[in-house]
Design a protein around this nucleic acid. Structure first.
Lengths: 193, 193
DNA sequence: CGCCGAGTTGAACTGAATCAAGAAACGTGG
DNA sequence: CCACGTTTCTTGATTCAGTTCAACTCGGCG
């Protein structure tokens, strides 16, 4: 039950839960292994889970006019979901693709709502998660508004070098909002200095 | 006390509060009038309020390399705050400027935290607000990833024509992530059709 | 071996930025 | 109410960042 320790550690970083509530919460978790290339959700489905990534890596992306655009990556220790759909209960525009084999612990929407109803702390965790997701999105939006493609790449490289090194040019470029060819050129020109 | 009715209606749209908790909440609200051109917060300050706009209009923007970039507009009936700073307790990168004379009802950070501690419902409202803010940001981020400037303009025009008509080219263009000159051209070319 | 997808490079093209100038709208004080 | 300066909006000419399309390289793998 190593995965449960990891997920508790992840929760403790947000807000420590007393043992009783933790036990309650664990009872809702469903464990699963999945293979690289599988999907946690596809466009058109309503997201009914929040997954904890005990292992593996994922990519959240959507398709517009036949082209893929990456919104987010998640790695071991992260929570993953098509959050917009999970909140709004509308069909997801987002696909979540496994970039590696993964182990997940997942909680269902209804189970989480029950947990919210029972526990103020659960409600609070929900708020803190929503707030942190908001912050992440706003930062990226501000970057899109005020930075060039090269500046966005250099900033990401600075703040998150592991992420940059682990991902393919194709995936990384679609996250940065440029074509793969452009990222390739950006890399060359900024490594020259 | 007309403003209090408006703000309660706004809250009721999110989650109805029982009278007792509502009274509790109201005791924390501070009413104020401010003039066009004033600021609710400036860069560098930590945001200590959530304002309810009983009247008026505001613009959330930040400055990078001497240039202004608009993140959001708010109008009568909206809640306004430098949310990132409010959550993170870090100095704000965001300015909030009054585009018109305004009346606000404001709650302080500490008062809101007290309210959260006392009331599960308060906690829930906090979560619902954070979630809706998240959705707004994600949508805009997806637009920046997948749409051209013209497509972003046309989409905004379609979804929010009043907003488009009320704002100056300067403010609107900095919200759409283009130069005023470009928005002017986009408008001309798309009105020809 | 030869194929295949991922990454890089080159050349032409394009959407949007920049710079500059003129026109329209706005506020302020006389 | 007009005259003034100031800001905002528009238009044109030029430049530039990033796209597109096409060709080529490289490493993995049947």
């Amino acid at each position: 039950m190593d995965e449960f320790k990891t997920i508790r550690a992840a929760y403790d970083r947000i807000l420590p839960l007393p043992d009783a509530e933790w036990a309650d919460f664990c009872r809702c978790l469903v464990q699963k292994r999945s293979d690289k290339g599988e999907f946690l959700i596809r466009e058109g489905q309503v997201e009914n889970h929040i997954h904890f990534l005990a292992n593996g890596a994922t990519r959240n992306y959507f398709i517009n006019d036949g082209k893929e655009f990456t919104v987010d990556f998640h790695f071991k220790g992260d929570f993953v979901t098509a959050y917009y759909s999970f909140i709004s209960r509308e069909p997801s525009e987002i696909f979540i693709e496994l970039l590696e084999d993964a182990e997940t612990l997942s909680i269902e929407y209804t189970a989480l709502q029950d947990f919210y109803r029972k526990s103020c702390l659960g409600e609070r965790i929900g708020r803190l998660i929503a707030e942190s997701q908001y912050m992440k999105r706003l930062k990226k939006e501000m970057d899109f508004l005020s930075l060039t493609a090269e500046q966005r790449y250099l900033k990401l490289l600075d703040k998150n070098p592991t992420l940059v090194s682990r991902l393919s040019v194709k995936h990384l470029s679609s996250y940065l909002g440029v074509q793969p060819e452009s990222l390739s050129r950006i890399r060359k020109s900024s490594s020259r200095n």
